[in-house]
Design a protein around this nucleic acid. Structure first.
Length: 865
DNA sequence: GAGCACTGC
């Protein structure tokens, strides 16, 4: 074995054997310095000391690893254009005396800058000012508006600058939302009398958008997800001196994961300082998690916001709820039994138990009528819209000018309130503004009322806040917010854990603040094994390796890989982007029917929400080419959001770059013709959707009335009868070609809804679904996918299909192990022969009557009911 | 005929 080969293998072996820990800072930096980019978090090469192990390796495993290695080298060779970013990432915090002096004199010069001084005057009023000590790990608590997000980072930076050590300081502050990362960065830059980014002292980075500050002596605001991505190439965050994690109390999945990573990281990075910023309520919990680190509390609000609870509102308005209709009501528990989740049930029980005591405490300050009204408001689970109208009227009549913001949970409340206000007598008569008037100041004498869903409750100016829940509910509200990590699927997170080399999945997850249940972890691991992303020993397979790198959940990642391999890249990326972000359609209040109608036209009878999005996206691209006015018009006419479409466009570009870097496509351009040979092939597109989304399959029970078409009934294996969500183009569809749907999002609200679905053919399920089995069932020969999607078929054809499917699986695995675009020009190649045969089969099958098999009769599938 | 929001070098 020659030396370089030995090194390759040793390197791979070390990456397989490496324990959770973090590769050494020095090595990573050295690699960065010699131009190697550890783009995907791979460990740096190690010396030949591990050669002994190589000899023990099985030959085929060795070969597999060599192939892996070749591919990785290829990948690294291709990432050069990103080098500028990586250089930024691996920026060494080596002291630069010249920079220290420059920063310090800049800072001193600011003392004469009137813009800066004006800002400083304001900053001095903030409660955070004057609390400027930082320990190694510290929890800072304080309510929204105390200025912690904007001030703490600056205190740290300015302190370093003043001590003449500015070049050693690089503060990174994570934000849970994109919008806050940008707006906070802009605010901080303004406070420093600077602009944001480009070599200045403050900048931001969010997905696909950044304005980076200078490398040393600066503050960077970024989304939490960005830091998690950084960890792949720089596991010890070597370029950061201070990490500030904001809003940790929100307990987002990413923030919880980062907390666990950082806690471990503190062992290997003794110089790293960490600040956790939390709401007051649970600061202690975070302190405990970090070995009882010190807590600092910042009191007070920036803006005087007067808060009122429901009892105050009822008393003030002397509001008495109207008697509801007197029909006998079922006891609450009976009605709720089938829908509510257990934790909600427990919450209600505690609420009812605490009520008498709470009511007694109200007696001192409130009238009996008010207390009775509170009780009656509580009987009804619904939000009392009359109360809101009365409150709005009160504000309009008695309060100073200013907009009224109403936050409501849910569509039906917003729509209901809208109706009520539209029909209210003077002075509450309401008109709907045109869309571009929404953000403008209303004319004198007109008050702006914004009705919105329950978005983040930050306020940006003084005012009054009326809560329409009582004090008891307010006190219980926070106790029952389950952390996201305990209520969300963990598949994607498991892959992240593997690629970040954080150790065995379950043992890492157990280290989080509130670990998910063992059952949830096991389920996710099983799913990933079923998907062939993890092998039996929970290591990443070649497929898992690629899925972990794509910034989407694994099923969508699989769809993306298939779109590349089957040369229908552009439309598949549109679908993937929209499933992982959001669909671009808007459905404005009162225009639902029209919006539905336009969507139906865009669907071009494809019976597919996914292809409808593709059509909409192509239409938008076309309109955009014809100019801004056309683009606006197209979006307006088709109820599309140009912002969302633009984001989808950017995401598609990001996916394409990943595919190109991994070797799945020839060009970074997702419109490249070789990657889009089959992009117009609707049936193949549907098959690729199956490849990604399987086993999320539903069965259509066709309407029996041939003459009077009725909406179909739909069933899934796990839930029995489900509904197609009204926003789907298939919602009121009566005619389908096939009896199978594939979907992505299924959610239980008022009933169980499939939010998006595509009608798919048996062939696509057979070739791109699960394992095929051939059996004799009730004296008939059948072919089944994963033993539950069953078709009648002559054995001869069933075997042919099964063999072809096996060929396809071998080919695809080969392609994923060693990414290479299919050579579509070489029609004689075996790749092309197998894939073409399958595409032909999928494409030419016109209708069920021409298929070589029949759907098994409905009765035989009774387990669906 | 319709719960909400957010996120990825």
């Amino acid at each position: 074995m020659d030396e370089s080969r030995e090194q390759h293998i040793a390197q791979l072996l070390s990456s397989v054997q490496r324990e959770p820990c973090i590769s050494s800072r020095q090595q990573v930096k050295e690699e960065a310095a010699c131009g190697h980019s550890y783009f995907d978090g791979d460990d740096p090469p190690e010396g030949p000391q591990k050669m002994g192990k190589v000899a023990e390796m099985e030959p085929d495993k060795k070969q597999k690893q060599e192939q892996e290695e070749e591919k990785e080298v290829k990948m690294k060779a291709k990432v050069e254009p990103r080098e500028r970013d990586l250089e930024y990432l691996f920026q060494d915090l080596v002291r630069k005396p010249a920079l220290d002096v420059e920063l310090k004199s800049d800072f001193q010069a600011k003392a004469e800058n009137p813009k800066y001084l004006e800002m400083l005057k304001f900053r001095e009023t903030l409660p955070s000012y004057g609390m400027r000590e930082v320990n190694r790990v510290v929890v800072i608590s304080g309510e929204t508006g105390c200025g912690k997000t904007t001030q703490v980072t600056q205190f740290i930076l300015d302190d370093y600058i003043q001590r003449g050590a500015g070049s050693l300081c690089r503060v990174v502050c994570t934000q849970p939302r994109r919008i806050s990362a940008i707006s906070v960065a802009e605010r901080v830059a303004a406070e420093r009398a600077e602009s944001v980014g480009e070599g200045r002292s403050c900048g931001y980075q969010i997905r696909l958008q950044s304005r980076l500050p200078r490398k040393q002596g600066s503050v960077l605001y970024c989304t939490t997800g960005i830091i998690l991505q950084w960890l792949r190439s720089d596991p010890c965050l070597s370029s950061i001196s201070h990490l500030v994690l904001d809003e940790v109390h929100e307990r987002s999945l990413q923030s919880d994961v980062l907390l666990a990573v950082v806690r471990d990281l503190l062992h290997s990075r003794e110089d790293l300082k960490v600040v956790l910023m939390s709401a007051t309520l649970n600061a202690e919990k975070f302190s405990k998690y970090f070995d009882n680190c010190p807590m600092i509390h910042i009191p007070g609000y920036t803006y005087p916001v007067e808060e009122y609870l429901l009892e105050d509102v009822v008393e003030m308005l002397r509001f008495r709820p109207q008697h509801q209709d007197r029909r006998p009501r079922f006891p609450r528990s009976f009605l709720q039994n089938q829908w509510t989740r257990p934790e909600k049930e427990a919450q209600e029980a505690e609420y009812r138990q605490s009520w008498p005591c709470f009511a007694r405490s109200l007696r001192d300050r409130f009238s009996d009528d008010t207390i009775e009204a509170l009780e009656r408001l509580d009987e009804d689970d619904k939000i009392n819209l009359d109360l809101i109208v009365a409150l709005i009227r009160h504000i309009v009549m008695n309060e100073d000018d200013g907009a009224i913001l109403v936050f409501l949970p849910g569509w039906d409340n917003i729509s209901g309130l809208n109706d009520l206000l539209m029909h209210a007598p003077d002075p509450c008569r309401v008109t709907m503004p045109l869309s571009d008037q929404v953000f403008k100041r209303p004319p004198a004498g007109v008050r702006k009322i914004v009705i919105a869903t329950n978005i983040a409750e930050t306020r940006v100016s003084p005012g009054k806040c009326y809560h329409l829940y009582n004090g008891l509910r307010a006190s219980l509200l926070d106790n029952y917010q389950l952390p996201e990590i305990q209520r969300t699927p963990l598949e994607e997170l498991c892959l992240q854990i593997k690629i970040l080399k954080l150790g065995p999945i379950a043992s890492f997850l157990r280290k989080t603040l509130d670990p998910p249940s063992e059952k949830a972890i096991e389920l996710a691991i099983t799913h990933l094994k079923d998907l062939n992303a993890l092998d039996r020993s929970e290591e990443l397979t070649p497929l898992g390796f690629h899925l972990a790198r794509l910034p989407v959940e694994p099923h969508i990642g699989k769809m993306i890989l298939f779109g590349a391999l089957l040369a229908c890249l552009d439309p598949v990326l549109t679908i993937a982007a929209s499933l992982s972000f959001k669909d671009p359609f808007c459905i404005p209040l009162g225009k639902e029917k029209l919006a539905d109608h336009r969507r139906k036209i865009l669907s071009k009878n494809s019976k597919s929400d996914h292809l409808t999005i593709v059509n909409a996206f192509w239409g938008w691209e076309d309109a955009k080419r014809r100019g801004y006015k056309c683009e606006r018009e197209f979006c307006w006419d088709n109820f599309l959001s140009a912002n969302t479409l633009q984001m989808l466009h950017n995401m598609k570009g990001q996916f394409a770059e990943h595919l190109w870097a991994a070797g799945f496509v020839r060009s970074k351009d997702l419109k490249d013709s070789s990657a889009n040979i089959n992009s117009e092939n609707e049936k193949l597109l549907k098959a690729v959707i199956v490849a990604g989304l399987y086993p999320k399959v539903a069965k259509i029970r066709p309407s029996l009335h041939k003459k009077r078409p009725m909406p179909v009934k739909v069933y899934t294996k796990a839930d029995g009868k489900v509904c197609i969500h009204p926003k789907s183009v298939n919602a009121e569809e009566t005619q389908f070609h096939y009896t199978w749907l594939i979907y992505h999002l299924k959610m239980r609200t008022s009933s169980i809804f499939l939010y998006d679905c595509t009608e798919v053919s048996p062939f696509s399920l057979l070739f791109f679904g699960g394992d095929i089995s051939i059996q004799k069932d009730q004296e008939q020969e059948t072919i089944a996918v994963d033993e539950w999607i069953v078709f009648q078929s002559p054995a001869r054809i069933a075997h042919l299909v099964k063999n072809l499917k096996r060929e396809l699986d071998v080919l695809l695995e080969e392609k994923i192990r060693q990414p290479r675009p299919v050579d579509w020009d070489d029609r004689g190649s075996s790749d092309c022969a197998v894939i073409s045969a399958i595409i032909d089969l999928i494409t030419t099958q016109e209708s069920p009557s021409e298929a070589p098999w029949q759907e098994r009769s409905w009765k035989a599938g009774q387990h669906w009911d």
